[in-house]
Design a protein around this nucleic acid. Structure first.
Lengths: 188, 188
DNA sequence: TGCCCCATCTAGGCATTGACAAGTTGGGGT
DNA sequence: ACCCCAACTTGTCAATGCCTAGATGGGGCA
């Protein structure tokens, strides 16, 4: 797997796995996960209709891989957070920067339910979230506070991505709106 | 359309529309919207494979009808709310009581994007939400406070339905957890 | 009471898709 | 130089969405 140029050597695409993932993310971003078809992705990549399945087993396998990648991206995004509010802002920015990942991550009915790689990535991201909460809250109600913080950021991101916040947000960057929103709640 | 008994008169099912909706909600609750098939619903109802399409036009039409019904249910649930916190609790309870509706309501890629009935139901529910916020917050930051409240309740409900709060919540009713969560945030 | 209209449902067909099985290719390791 | 095996192709089948044309019978109207 050295040849990564755009060559179409018939066989050995170069990095078909990445190509399919990228195409899938593009489709999901614009038309949602329901519009995704393995055969369509194969056509985009210029390969035979069964080629994608070789890398992802089946449709659910592809979506599981996307969710896993998403949780890992989220984990590394949260790792650099400076404080709980920044973690929230980063959470929202992650959702707007990677809307396809985000959508798939939180639709478990699209995944292979027992995939170990997904479970690990998920728990890695959860750890980063709990770290951010722990360093900002006294340990007594840390668990409840964590749920509250996660709910707030997740709800905001979800509502924004589902076009339920378009007019209230207007032209402002959603992360900024979220930031001032936390300011209102915690009067920091 | 008087005959609503369980008669299977070959023709004139009685209330096929309701039967299909109910079956669809059942499928969505257990296996998610992706598992929904018009032909499967037709089999459940004991009618021909094209019968459901007559009532809903197509698959997206069925899901649009479910979303519309969901927003109307939500609107009437919020109408009776006593205060903002109660509205939040009711929002969460709605999500857990009607998980299939809730899922479909917030996946716009499954809907007919311009359906007027859906848009109206959506705005009715939005009105109830804004009412609940307006009577609890001074008008200055009502808009932002509304987004905050909605985000909190919506995020909590979404995370719970996607099985991301199972261990933190444990056996407690999710609405109770949400209630104590708002207590922690607003130290009421 | 009788008749006709049309909403409701059936029947058939076509293109697309996911999934599976079996064969082909050719690059890298020994 | 050879062979193994991952990567890809080709072919096929059942299931689905959606379209068109036709059958049925209940309710409204004369």
């Amino acid at each position: 797997m050295t040849r990564s140029t755009g060559s179409r050597d018939a066989y050995h695409h170069g990095d078909l796995r990445r190509a399919v993932l990228t195409a899938a993310l593009d489709v999901i971003r614009t038309d949602g996960p329901a519009a995704l078809s393995l055969r369509g992705l194969a056509r985009r990549a210029g390969v035979s209709h069964a080629a994608p399945a070789h890398h992802f087993k089946d449709r659910a396998g592809l979506l599981t891989a996307i969710a896993t990648e998403g949780f890992d991206l989220l984990a590394s995004t949260l790792a650099d957070a400076a404080g709980l509010r920044d973690a929230g802002v980063r959470y929202v920015r992650f959702a707007t920067d990677h809307p396809a990942h985000f959508q798939v991550m939180f639709q478990p009915d699209l995944h292979h339910p027992t995939d170990p790689a997904l479970a690990e990535a998920k728990s890695r991201a959860g750890d980063r979230l709990r770290e951010a909460v722990a360093e900002a809250v006294d340990t007594d109600d840390a668990r409840l506070a964590g749920i509250a913080a996660w709910s707030l950021a997740h709800g905001f991101a979800t509502l924004f991505l589902t076009h339920n916040l378009t007019d209230p947000v207007g032209d402002r960057a959603p992360e900024d709106v979220f930031s001032s929103l936390t300011g209102l709640l915690f009067r920091t």
